[in-house]
Amino acid sequence: MTERREKLEIVRDILSAIYEKKGRIKPTHLLYKSNLAHNKLKIYLGDLIQKELVKEENQDRSKMYLITEKGIKFLNEYKRVQEFMESFGL
């Protein structure tokens, strides 16, 4: 059984999923990659858009989610934090 992901890890997974798709992703791909229920993903995305970590764009009748500069910075900072935490193992 997998452990329940913490909020911060979910945010990291969403941002990583967008970043790995060259910074833009379709909602269906994001749903699959983030491994979240549709309504949960919607809540998280709303939160990330409000915090300007993610941007929503409408292209040819389809929706796309883009990672912002602030989102990339957050992702890098999170990686640093994780490395520091691993070095202490606490």
Partner: peptide, 10 residues
């Protein structure tokens, strides 16, 4: 557990 340089430094 980690076998990383950083954890060795600590």
């Amino acid at each position: 557990t980690n076998l990383s340089l950083k954890s060795f430094l600590v």
